[in-house]
Design a protein around this nucleic acid. Structure first.
Lengths: 197, 197, 197, 197
DNA sequence: TATGAATGAGTATTCATTCAT
DNA sequence: GATGAATGAATACTCATTCAT
């Protein structure tokens, strides 16, 4: 069908734009990126961006939403390979690593972005926290890790990870912080909450 | 001397501007605040800002520098009341609390600010870390807290604090996060690193 | 012949476009209507408009031309039912009523439209004026209406009618001004130029 | 005072802008004029326009308001030299003549302008109509002019005048329609409504 | 011929910075 | 030194027009 050829091409352009925006947002920052930057990165004209996304906010929301869905999927997959808390943390970092630059920008800019940003972050954290808590509770019951508030355990982990992500220049200027420091963070965190010394 | 009267007035205006900027930056965000907002908050004309600070960047740098000095002073005072790690953490939070809004913005925006911002943050963290490490080392040697990398211990603490600060809307929408959650954070952190269960 | 089937379809699309444009122009204004509005109203794609009318100006010109021909026809028909001046005025208003919205827009926008607009208006007015003058002259000769310049008599009538059309919001916000005020305008005009008191 | 020198200069710029806009609006049309056209005509930079008028609409409203006040004043002055209906019509045309181009654009564009435009037009017409009616009533009572609805008498006059104004290209392409055709219009109108033949 | 995605020129508006007073 | 009006570079968004399918 003619229809589907055109439709496919349009979808491709949309994907190119979302993908380009995802990259540019990760590099320049979400609000700092100009619409024309994204057009250029996607290899289309300035006007084309507006054919697909009526406003800048719409584009930002779409990229974030896309990202949220992807992260949700990864978090869901996490469940299967569940197992130990260590496994869950590992899976969590792995999920972040695939979108490290964008995720980091989102962490930094959430408060100056449309509400969907906050909602997406919360939704991601909720899902992750669910899995972490489950595994942690198990190990806590088994006496392997210290008794403590689940919320605080989770916030400590997230705080630690976000601190490393948002200070990549200190910890891993050249490449992915997760790759460079991930295992160390897991080891450290596990050690810290472990009931053994 | 006439000179000195003028000089005094000039200094006063400069102080008014720095102080106004500090407040406005804490409210609106550092880069989101317009130069005219700061002029208005300081009760001077728009043009006056540029008499004292040639560019926006200069003003931002000056405010950050000022803040850095203030924080440095507080950190230095920390030493006297040194004592236990718990005391040091308490003093640390107390030092942040006095500039909570601005400090939080600085944490969020550091990467889109002039280099002085980063340098100031690093310098503050270095000083704080020195004291924390000292106290922590003592208690670690005494077997009160688990053996672990000093750097990781510190980064965990900073990550936790920054996570709460930058998510105030979740933890304490109405008032200071430090006031609301400070003791809880200290308790949790001490518990976590303690060698006891 | 295949040819003629295609040709018929093409002509149909063209007619749909002209008709849709006529309506949309009457609603939104001629220059305020977007090409895509017209495509939508005609139930064809945006690009199709340009298959039939190379530029916006061409479309506008065609719609106006179409309208001019229709008005010319009506004016010509007027002649048959000629009779009294009152009959002619009535026929004139009747002719306008059938395209009231579009005619009103044309009156308002003529000066910012392609020259054809002006030419069409002049051509319409000339034809109308011919008939009005003829009837008026007859009644003037008969002493029924005051002696006066034919041009001024005509312009007074047109001015009056256009004033009511272009201020519909004042005189008949809900429906056709001609329907609401037409007879009144004729009565008033006839009374005014009548040689009786 | 320093204050007043600056204030005077600012007011001058504002006046320059209003005056330039008034002229440019009269030439290009009110909505067709770009903000940069007005800046250029006023001899200031593009940005300066926005120092004085926050938005295009604000500028348009200010120019119209200014014009309304001027017309109101003129209409008020009309009262003194009141006398006969002929005098009032003459004064009316005289009042329009001083802003002919702008008034004409306003007549044409009213419907696509901010509400103040319509309100201003109505307010002007109301004032004019008051004076015309008063004089007309007097002469009607004296039996000099035919008995007829005041509203229709007024609308006929306004319609006639607006028709000539908005078709200047037909009646006086080179110069002011009022200058060229004013007396003729008055003579014709007086003749038409006169009870004599 | 019809389609509708892509194009890019055109414009209001913001805001750091300058400079005459 | 203080003032605040003027400046102009920067940028999101619109819409007639083109062109590959």
């Amino acid at each position: 069908m003619k229809r589907s050829i055109r439709q496919i091409q349009k979808d491709e352009t949309r994907e190119k734009l979302l993908s380009a925006a995802h990259i540019v947002f990760g590099q320049k920052g979400i609000m700092a990126a100009r619409m024309s930057d994204i057009a250029e990165a996607a290899g289309v004209s300035h006007g084309t961006v507006f054919v697909h996304f009526k406003t800048q906010e719409t584009l930002v929301a779409a990229v974030i939403d896309d990202f949220g869905i992807r992260m949700g999927q990864r978090t869901h997959d996490m469940a299967r390979n569940s197992g130990s808390l260590r496994d869950v943390l590992k899976a969590h970092l792995e999920g972040i690593r695939e979108d490290e630059a964008f995720y980091t920008q989102l962490v930094i800019e959430t408060r100056s972005l449309p509400p969907i940003a906050r909602e997406t972050m919360i939704s991601i954290q909720s899902a992750v926290s669910f899995h972490i808590n489950q595994a942690a509770q198990r190990e806590m019951d088994a006496g392997v890790i210290k008794p403590m508030s689940m919320a605080l355990l989770f916030n400590t982990w997230i705080g630690l990870v976000h601190y490393y992500l948002t200070n990549r220049d200190l910890f891993s200027p050249e490449k992915s912080v997760i790759e460079t420091c991930g295992s160390m963070l897991i080891d450290h965190f596990m050690h810290m909450i472990s009931s053994a010394n």
